[in-house]
């Protein structure tokens, strides 16, 4: 059984060495390179063809996110696992979005580390329970109607129902000025002159 070829990328040598030592203890895992940033990684990829890249996110030259983007584009076969100090869902979610197959915290156990490497190598994704929860927490709803933003849609719906600016502001927990600005932005977007025209045109465009 061939061993899994791994490249470790982290700007802290001490960490890299620790991690490499830990991985190398396992027969089926082989750290073929230990590099300090994304630029070095892509230099190395010219001659090497790793299975897995263990990738730190915060690095001085070409950080983890940029590496993920480039890998996704140019090295589709190489699977990346982010390993970071950041336990904030936003980092996890972005990594997942950019194509990372797994996400590990740096204070991970040896057990989890090897499991993640093997799972990912098998073609699965690895996000621990804790990580998954954090990731889901941070995902914001982003489906908005083409032309209007979510807030604008809310406002125009209320306008169509006959609410006043003040009432809408109270209802949506925004300032009246914000409602006004949204309203005038919508007028500009649909090239109409007043609220009545705005509502009519929005209806005809199926925006509400």
């Amino acid at each position: 059984m061939p061993s899994i070829k791994i490249i470790v990328v982290d700007d802290h040598k001490l960490f890299r060495d620790g991690l490499t030592a830990l991985i190398d203890k396992h027969e089926d895992l082989d750290v073929i390179a230990s590099l300090e940033d994304g630029v070095k990684l892509f230099e190395a990829l010219i001659d090497n063809n790793p299975d897995i890249v263990l990738l730190d996110l915060s690095m001085p030259n070409m950080n983890g996110f940029d590496v993920l983007k480039k890998l996704k584009k140019e090295f589709k076969t190489i699977k990346a696992i982010a390993i970071s100090m950041h336990d904030d869902g936003n980092y996890i979610a972005r990594c997942a979005k950019l194509g990372a197959q797994g996400y590990l915290l740096k204070n991970t156990d040896e057990q989890e580390l090897t499991t993640a490497i093997r799972e990912v190598y098998e073609g699965n994704k690895y996000f621990s329970q804790e990580i998954s929860t954090k990731m889901i927490d941070s995902l914001s709803e982003t489906n908005s109607i083409k032309k209007f933003t979510k807030k604008e849609t809310e406002i125009i719906k209320l306008l169509a129902k006959g609410f006043t600016t003040k009432e809408i502001a109270t209802k949506l927990y925004v300032s009246t000025r914000t409602v006004e600005t949204h309203r005038s932005n919508m007028l500009k977007k649909l090239k109409v002159k007043n609220t009545v025209e705005l509502i009519n045109k929005a209806k005809s465009l199926d925006l509400i």
Binding site: F15, G18, L19, L22, K106, N107
Partner: peptide, 10 residues
């Protein structure tokens, strides 16, 4: 952070 994680590996 990295020092501590390195320590942990150690």
């Amino acid at each position: 952070g990295p020092l501590l994680t390195s320590l942990r590996f150690y």
